[in-house]
Design a protein around this nucleic acid. Structure first.
Length: 983
RNA sequence: GCACCUGUGGUGGAAUUGGUAGACACGCCAGACUUAGGAUCUGGUGCAGCGAUGCGUGUAAGUUCGAGUCUUAUCAGGUGUACCA
């Protein structure tokens, strides 16, 4: 066999060996410490894997292999997030069942992944769309349905800490209701949609349906009438994180607000724990910050406001309790139920008109257009602090979803209130000394309070005490007001969170069905032992003609309560056979606990067995994109905390350390077509104008506008020029394309760096690289490109460097011409050992810090050093092969075997670093006087710091620098530098 | 608007965390071997200058014997989020 670096043969051979020997199979092993490495599992899209996907996989694969070499028992699984919209839309278009296209895509992904040489234990693969997997998604949902969130109730088991806010079986709450109704419930901080008040007698008098409705108010998975993001184009609701800039994340369709009855998860109950947990995990600051913002904790005060000449009162929420004396009006959100109650007869028409106007505006319009709108309700609210009557307005700038949907307006110190007051000519009372509010409000929380009250009679006395804040700082004033308000029962201190409950229903086919049926209208869980409720077959994947979700098309979709099975819905009798839920679960349902399932993927008795859960605990290293910061990474943490409360998950946080790999962007290429023609003009011939209104460039050729059109990256040659023939062949619509070339006879394209996406035709897949250079080169190159966490455009320039390095690496072991292994048993020289140990030190440290690009540089240096030393010693070359194994596993295995080993290099031992090999007998140290290098001194390696100082001062070269000067101090940086500071 | 991150050669990026800025790679230049090279090998390559030398980490100040690194201001780019009271 020719002893060239034949990566094709080597990689094929080792792929087969790994499969045959089950090299990457992992089992629990009490004798070894565990390490759990996880990648965010991919959605198997039709476009296949692109070069961006493997970036994170390679990074974690290197880490996993490194940990294994260090003796850890490493779990490194992979699976597929298989439910998703693209498969469903493909099904709608073609009529093909989404499972077919999904499984085809999965096969394609697997093929591509296998080429890159990952150490995944494929026996643990999960797919979210298989019944044995989604059984546990449904199970978790049922557990959430059966739980509420609170501190320990009198009906809870004893021995818990009073501050333990956690999920509890709903039976505890039912028992409480039976004994006390809602009396005294508030002290246990029960998470709820709205505050209810009833007695034990009332509770007991209600029928099952009424009780069920009441319990919905507390369940962690509940049916709620909520404002949802409805996307008419997709025919489904979307979660907040699936809506970007007022349009759907997928497809970019408009989204409107609509009130619907939907399954929801009470994520908000966990707000504080989600916030606190951030301090216990090693995630990047930016992701933590993003999550903090998303949770949006704000401490404030709720104050009860009575409406004048009416029994109605409402509650406002403010973080600026110190500004109570500056209130000049109140504002309600247009969606608020209070609007109808406070509107007076004479204003009714106007208010209705305004509400109609607000409803006509989309979320998007409201976001872009901040012009002041609003209407007076006709009523006045009484400020409990000043006793003054202030008009109540209705305006869209107050959001129904945050706080109480009602605010007190302090125009002097809030810019939105200020704009409103100016527009409606309402008074503005400044409350901070020196604040000028003639032009704009003073929003800062700094300064000394005044005008609070203006005069003594402007402050209402409660139990003989009137509030006075004058002279206090704003912070003190907030505290003082909080005290006053709560002591005199005018309101209470309240913490608000921006985090919303997650809407959990989707009007789609391709998702987990809910294990729920409606027994005389009461949502009822399918018994646990009957799970999973499998996704039914349907003829059509679109909503039904009556507007039901796609599952409305399923014929065999009713629950027979007696026989515990799914039956034809024609049999529904509302006595024993009931309709099943037609919605399905959203994408994040299946991805929220998949990391737990990997621990014990075939367990049919439980989500995870106790033993596996105890052994693997949680994910030590999680690698994935930062785009999931407010989606998956919040839902997963919520889901895991819930399972932790149940005792299923053993750690409160699912992902101990998180690395966000950067995005690999693609070079999108554009050609320019003149409007209404088939003529395409070279980019350099165009005139560019910036269109302010549309916020984009417009292009003109001899007065005619030209539209930029994506062209496939494969039609571009040399990075800038269009291959016109390829372009014409690429798509039928371009076959007749006429081109206008520049003077050099070229057609230049315009390039932009964008996210890699099939629709942008800028996708580069890793297959070609694997084919031309091999997987090891691809792995090295993707890591060499730069820091893992940084986004960067894909660029193949430079890949040759990595390929050359592997060839050199190979040539270190093999004499290519004579087909002879060069490794022998000779003693390593000091230089050999130094090169090796320098490398061990560098690579070990770099892997821990995910600084793979610099470790590859270190390899390049070490290999060229060893090559010039003509090193052949087994004592050097064996550990060297182990060192490269995490990065380039195929070549490492091949060399390892060639050196006579019969076991995989994966089971070798990571070489140990020994400092002594780095120390030279004499060190060359530059001597500086106040910074500048003056000369170099040879110093014995074992000299003490004092000896070095003496030598430096005593050297003949020092004399002229020291003449007439005083030595201030001497800085010796061991092995590097001597710095003598003189005056 | 607010928050966070990033600014270093022609390019991707290093810099032992305050100690010789530009490792390593790409690219480029020169040379060697070649019929040839988009193969391989050797040497060079921050900028200005023939040179000694000078200047250099977005910009401007500051701390320090010493700053790419710390502080403040400012500019530019990116990401997230937004009538959140």
């Amino acid at each position: 066999m020719a002893r060239d670096y034949n990566f094709r043969e080597i990689e094929k051979k080792w792929h087969q060996q790994w499969v045959a020997n089950k090299t990457y199979k992992v089992c629990e092993d009490e004798n070894r410490k565990k390490f759990y490495v996880l990648n965010m599992f991919p959605y198997p899209s039709g476009a296949g894997l692109h070069v961006g996907h493997p970036l994170g996989y390679i990074a974690s694969d290197i880490y996993a292999r490194y940990k294994r070499l260090q003796g850890y028992n490493v779990l490194n699984p992979m699976g597929y997030d298989a439910y998703g919209l693209p498969a469903e839309q493909h099904a709608i278009k073609t009529g093909q069942h989404p499972e077919i296209s999904t499984f085809q895509n999965i096969d394609h992904y697997r093929e591509q992944l296998d080429k890159i040489g990952f150490c995944f234990d494929w026996d643990r693969e999960v797919r979210t769309c298989t019944p044995d997997y989604y059984k546990w998604t449904q199970w978790a949902f049922q557990k959430m349905f059966g739980s509420f969130f609170a501190g320990p109730l009198p009906t809870s088991p004893r021995g818990e800490e009073p501050q333990a806010q956690k999920a509890r079986p709903i039976s505890q709450l039912v028992e409480y209701f039976e004994q006390h109704g809602t009396e005294g419930l508030e002290q246990y901080h029960v998470a709820q949609s709205e505050e209810f008040s009833f007695t034990a007698e009332e509770w007991k008098s209600w029928d099952a349906k009424k009780q069920s409705e009441v319990l919905m108010n507390y369940r962690l998975a509940f049916l709620g009438e909520t404002m949802v993001n409805w996307c008419p184009e997709l025919g489904t609701v979307l979660a907040n994180d699936e809506v970007v800039n007022g349009v759907s994340e997928r497809g970019g369709y408009p989204v409107e607000q609509k009130k619907m009855r939907q399954w929801c998860l009470r994520v908000s109950a966990y707000s504080q724990r989600l916030l606190d947990g951030l301090d216990t995990i090693q995630w990047s600051d930016s992701i933590k910050e993003t999550q903090k913002n998303w949770i949006g904790r704000s401490e404030g005060t709720e104050v009860e406001i009575k409406v004048d000449e009416s029994d109605v009162s409402f509650t406002i929420f403010t973080t600026r309790a110190d500004t109570m004396f500056g209130v000049t009006f109140f504002v309600l959100a247009p969606e608020s139920e209070l609007v109808a109650q406070v509107t007076t007869e004479d204003k009714k028409a106007e208010v209705e008109e305004y509400i109609k106007y607000v409803k006509s505006r989309t979320e998007r319009e409201r976001m872009i257009d901040h012009t002041v709108t609003g209407v007076f309700s006709g009523s006045y609210g009484i400020n409990p602090i000043t006793g003054e009557k202030c008009p109540i307005y209705i305006s869209e700038y107050v959001l129904a979803g945050y706080g109480t949907g009602a605010i007190m307006a302090v125009p002097a110190h809030d810019s939105r209130d200020y704009a409103f007051a100016k527009h409606f000519n309402l008074p503005i009372i400044p409350l901070v000394e020196g604040a000028d509010v003639s032009e704009q409000s003073y929003d800062a929380k700094e300064g000394t309070v005044m005008n609070s009250p203006v005069s003594e009679d402007k402050s209402v006395k409660y139990d003989g005490e009137a509030l006075c804040l004058n002279g206090l700082s704003i912070k003190e004033a907030i505290q003082e007001t909080k005290r006053f308000v709560s002591e005199h029962k005018l309101g209470r201190v309240k913490v608000n969170y921006r985090l919303r409950d997650a809407i959990f229903s989707r009007q789609r086919y391709w998702g987990e069905p809910f294990p729920v049926y409606y027994k005389q209208g009461v949502p009822t869980m399918v018994p646990e032992e009957c799970l999973p409720v499998e996704l039914p077959q349907v003829e059509k994947f679109l909503p039904t003609e009556t507007g039901e979700p796609p599952l409305g098309n399923a014929q065999i979709w009713a629950w027979d309560e007696q026989n515990k099975q799914i039956v034809d819905k024609a049999l529904i009798d509302e006595q024993t056979i009931f309709p099943l839920e037609l919605n399905t679960m959203p994408g994040f349902a299946g991805s929220s606990a998949y990391y737990l399932r990997y621990m014990d993927p075939t367990n049919s008795e439980a989500l995870i067995g106790e033993k596996a859960a105890e052994y693997w605990q949680n994910v030590d290293l999680y690698v994935g994109g930062s785009e999931h910061a407010t989606g998956h990474l919040i839902y997963s943490r919520f889901w895991n905390k819930f399972l932790f409360d149940l005792g299923v998950s053993k750690k409160e946080e699912p992902f101990q350390k998180l690395i966000n790999q950067g995005m690999i962007q693609g070079w999108s290429s554009f050609v320019f077509r003149l409007k209404g023609t088939q003529t395409y003009v070279s980019y350099d011939l165009l005139e560019t104008q910036y269109d302010d209104a549309a916020k984009k460039n417009r292009y003109y050729y001899q007065g005619t506008e030209a539209d930029p059109i994506y062209t496939d990256i494969s039609t571009v040659k040399g990075g800038k020029e269009l291959d016109v023939d390829l372009f014409r062949q690429w798509m039928p619509e371009f076959r007749e394309a006429e081109v206008v070339l520049n003077e050099q006879g070229q057609y230049l394209i315009y390039q932009a760096i964008e996210k890699m996406s099939k629709s942008k035709y800028n996708v580069v897949n890793p297959d070609d690289i694997c084919e031309n250079y091999g997987a090891d080169t691809l792995r090295l190159y993707e890591m060499f490109l730069g820091p893992v966490e940084q986004s960067k455009p894909w660029d193949v320039a430079g890949i040759d460097g990595c390929f050359r390095f592997l060839k050199k690496f190979w040539a270190l072991y093999w004499n290519i011409k004579e087909e002879q292994l060069l490794v022998d048993d000779s003693e390593p020289t000091a230089d050999n050992l130094k090169s090796l140990h320098k490398l061990i030190k560098k690579v070990s440290a770099d892997i821990e810090e995910f600084s793979y690009n610099t470790s590859i540089s270190a390899f390049m240096v070490a290999v060229s050093e060893l090559a010039s030393q003509k090193c052949r010693s087994r004592a050097i070359l064996e550990p060297l092969a182990v060192l490269i194994a995490p990065f380039a596993p195929h070549i490492a295995e091949e060399l390892w075997e060639a050196m006579g080993h019969t076991t995989s290099v994966c089971d070798a031992k990571w070489p140990e670093f020994d400092e002594k090999h780095l120390v030279e007998s004499t060190l060359k140290m530059p001597v500086q006087f106040c910074g500048k290098v003056k000369f170099t001194l040879n110093v014995p390696a074992d000299a003490s710091k004092e000896e070095v100082e003496q030598m430096a001062l005593g050297a003949p070269e020092s004399a002229k620098h020291l003449e007439g000067k005083q030595v201030v101090k001497i800085i010796v940086v061991p092995g590097r530098i001597i710095n003598i500071v003189v005056k």
